[in-house]
Design a protein around this nucleic acid. Structure first.
Lengths: 225, 225
DNA sequence: GTCATGATTTAGCTATGCCTAAATTAGCAC
DNA sequence: GTGCTAATTTAGGCATAGCTAAATCATGAC
């Protein structure tokens, strides 16, 4: 049987979901193009096909933007569930380190069957989040909303908990691990900001100076003490 | 990075390796076409590309046939190693049954990284065979030669051991499991052949009548008693 | 040796998913 | 409203991997 979706289609759907944000706003072709690393012309072509598909994956309006249809959103969330389950599985069962899981999961997420998805989830005991702290959508696509803020936007002296970290760059991830910037860790931003860095107390250690690129990859939320 | 091989290329290489047999004879386009379920014309086109690649995967002579080059053989064995390691992993760690592993492994074999291959092998303790009894090639491609014969060609009354079973048909596999036709089991062909079936004592049970399609999927070798 | 038959290859087409370059459209300033 | 600029779309091309139909080749029968 021909697969329902291709790798390219999955990647478009994920990108539209991410770029649309929690409000699921319409996403422009240019935004998709730069996020996916392809030309805007390629995006237009793909969106036209996705809109004409049966069932349609997107609602596309020329010169305006694109939104996911119900079917599109369902598939996007399924692929994200695959990705995050795989990351946790590779990390917990196959000795993958924090910075190695993303690349492998990014490839395999398109190819695992529903059966394998279920077996991995069962083996892991239906985990709620991946190793970077990102929530794993339920099988029906449900995903608990979160109040996350970039650490660099968190007010001084107010304690916060790391809820997740960006998994895009393995080098950054290794550095975060070294510094103890793990999901669940308590952090306090100390007075002492400069251009290019902030001062942060991580867990119970001494305040540490974090460069902005690094700190911008750390998402936090309030802690109820 | 663009992958070194595509799924189609992998499938051609595996097919050439299998159809060439232990002597690695040249394989005809027609044989490949019927094995792969595509038209002979498609095979010719693909072989021409595979021969021109750098490094070349095949040695191709028009109107004669095709053989694997060293690079082609290496890749074919790597994919087979992936397939069989995956089968054992799915079976032993993720509660897949005997007849479910093939389909999943057939898809994933093309997409797992060398790192995942290594981690799975380590987790399993470098197993020698998959759940159907097929030998898993070593990382360098080495694969112990076997003296297997189809059960239907084994002489009467001479004890034999099942070395492997065909994994193509899940229905057949379930039937084999029900009958106890598992790799390692001792079998003896009893006098009582008819057209369409043979009589076989499986393990220490009573003689059982096996249909030829089923029995032809059972490979045996001599047992040293 | 010729010829027929079956195997094989060529030629030309389809679809996906990307590209570039050129044309077009939308939205904003004024 | 006009016009500028940036976003968007169209047009035409490339590679992969399949297809059909037509041409060609090779081998065995005679």
């Amino acid at each position: 049987m021909t697969p329902q979706t291709t790798e390219a289609v999955d990647d478009y759907l994920k990108a539209i979901l991410e770029l649309g944000g929690p409000a699921e706003e319409a996403v422009s072709s240019n935004a998709l193009a730069s996020h996916l690393g392809v030309r805007a012309a390629s995006v237009t072509g793909m969106l036209q096909k996705l809109a004409l598909r049966e069932p349609s994956f997107v609602v596309y309006q020329k010169h305006y933007g694109v939104r996911l249809s119900d079917a599109g959103k369902r598939r996007a969330l399924e692929v994200i569930r695959h990705h995050r389950l795989l990351e946790r599985f590779l990390h917990d069962f196959l000795d993958y380190s924090w910075d190695e899981v993303h690349e492998e999961a990014e490839r395999l997420e398109h190819y695992i069957s529903e059966r394998l998805e279920d077996r991995i989830a069962a083996k892991l005991g239906d985990p709620a989040s991946d190793p970077h702290g990102h929530p794993i959508p339920e099988k029906d696509g449900a995903i608990a909303p979160r109040n996350e803020v970039q650490l660099i936007h968190w007010p001084c002296s107010v304690p916060a908990g790391i809820s997740s970290v960006s998994d895009r760059d393995p080098v950054e991830l290794r550095e975060m691990k070294r510094l103890g910037l793990l999901p669940g860790t308590k952090v306090v931003v100390e007075p002492g900001s400069r251009t290019g860095s902030i001062l942060v107390r991580i867990g119970s250690g001494q305040p540490t100076r974090l460069t902005l690129p690094l700190a911008s990859g750390v998402l936090v939320s309030g802690v109820t003490e």
